[in-house]
Amino acid sequence: MRVRHRSQVLFITAASLLLLAQSLPAASGDVNSDGRVDDLDIRIVEQYLRGDLLLQNDQIKAADADGDGKVTRNDRDLLKRRLEGITVKSGPASQLELQSVSGGVVLDKATGKPLAGVEVSLPDEGITVRTDAQGRFKLARAPAGKILTAKASSYAPQSITLARGGSGGYRLLLEQLNPQLMVVDDNLYHLGNDDFDPNSAGALQFNLRSIGGRFEKTFELTSFPREDLTLRIGSLIGLDTPESVAAGQSGLTDRILPRGGLRIFLNGSAIERLVLNGDDLEVKLPRWLLQRGTNRLMLSVDPYDQNNISISKPVTGLYGTATRSSFDLDDIEFAHLVIVDPTGSLVDGKLEGELGKKPSPPGP
């Protein structure tokens, strides 16, 4: 019997040379050092196991999921399971934390059917993914307290605040647009002055720069509504008020806070003061304040609303260091504004945004 011996040849491709040239340390699982752990990292590990690719020491450490000092099929399987959101108990705790993957599903609120191609984002983290054919999505990381958003064509946007100690399994229900719904804005914004106490609510969540103390939009009504409308705010974080402190939402327990909150104005009149953070917050838009044609909506944490806290900061000068009290806006973040009309007359309405305009301060 003739035995044929096949010689194994190691192929070094251009991609291999690029990997060899990388010298930056890689995070656990992030074999190609692109800042995330995904299917590409799995494919690189598989190429290495087949002998088609060489890895540097830092990349070997990143691929070593079980912490035994070498890269084997077990490491590949562990990385795959982590990407699928399955909890893995072996290996160093630091590696498992870096590899944690959260996910969830997006469904049609009325039918319960999964929605494919929905844009799911953590705007503060710069993370955006899309759902698969089963409506599922995966997030490389999901820090507690962040606002998770979902939006799709022909649907009203939805958002939730990620709970502390959560392990994924997020479920978002999108409502199909209809004559009862009008989307005012489907983005996330940071209001304030980027100057807040580290113990304030949302202090660890604010990565976006603030757009100032006010947010404005106008919307058009071609007919007068038959009933009061409702403004729905998808998510709100960051409020430092006596009420939010009492609810355990803020760590500012060592000071007396003035009556603040997020003030809502309709056509120049104050209509609501929100004092607690949360999701799916509703504010009534009184019918008698609405008008046919252009209506102005404003959310504000500006000083004239008395929505501020005084903080003491060390100031170093010519004669040493002293403390100085400064005026601090209550930095907050909110996502998604939707107007709801129970009578369904919004089919005749349209929206035009005016972001950044500064009207005269409304009266007390």
Rank of each mutant, 00 (worst) to 15 (best):
G261P: 01
G261Y: 01
G261V: 00
G261C: 01
L262H: 02
R263F: 09
I264K: 00
I264D: 00
I264L: 04
F265V: 06
F265Y: 13
G268H: 07
G268C: 07
G268I: 04
S269N: 06
S269P: 00
I271V: 14
I271T: 07
E272R: 14
E272K: 14
R273T: 05
R273N: 04
R273K: 05
R273M: 03
N277K: 03
N277D: 13
D279Y: 04
D279N: 12
D279H: 05
D280T: 09
L281I: 15
L281Q: 15
L281E: 13
L281R: 15
L281P: 03
E282D: 14
E282F: 14
E282Q: 15
P286M: 02
P286D: 01
R287A: 13
W288T: 03
W288P: 00
W288D: 07
L289D: 03
L289H: 04
L290V: 07
L290R: 11
L290Y: 09
Q291C: 05
R292N: 09
R292D: 07
R292S: 11
T294V: 11
T294P: 02
N295C: 08
R296S: 12
R296I: 04
L297Q: 01
M298W: 05
M298Y: 05
L299S: 05
L299G: 04
V301Q: 11
P303S: 10
P303A: 12
Y304V: 06
Y304Q: 06
D305A: 13
D305T: 15
Q306T: 08
Q306A: 14
Q306I: 09
N307V: 04
N308Y: 08
N308S: 08
N308T: 06
S312Y: 02
S312I: 00
S312T: 01
S312G: 02
K313F: 13
K313G: 08
V315C: 02
V315T: 03
T316C: 00
T321R: 09
T321Q: 10
T321F: 02
A322S: 15
A322K: 13
A322W: 10
T323I: 13
R324H: 11
R324F: 11
S325L: 11
S326R: 14
S326K: 13
S326M: 14
F327H: 11
D328H: 07
L329W: 12
L329K: 13
D330K: 10
D330E: 13
I332W: 10
I332P: 09
I332R: 09
E333P: 00
F334Y: 15
F334A: 15
A335V: 01
L337N: 05
V338E: 14
I339W: 13
I339N: 12
V340R: 11
P342V: 02
T343N: 05
G344L: 10
G344P: 08
S345G: 14
L346R: 11
V347F: 06
D348P: 00
D348E: 15
K350E: 05
L351W: 03
L351N: 07
L351C: 04
E352N: 12
G353M: 07
E354I: 08
E354L: 12
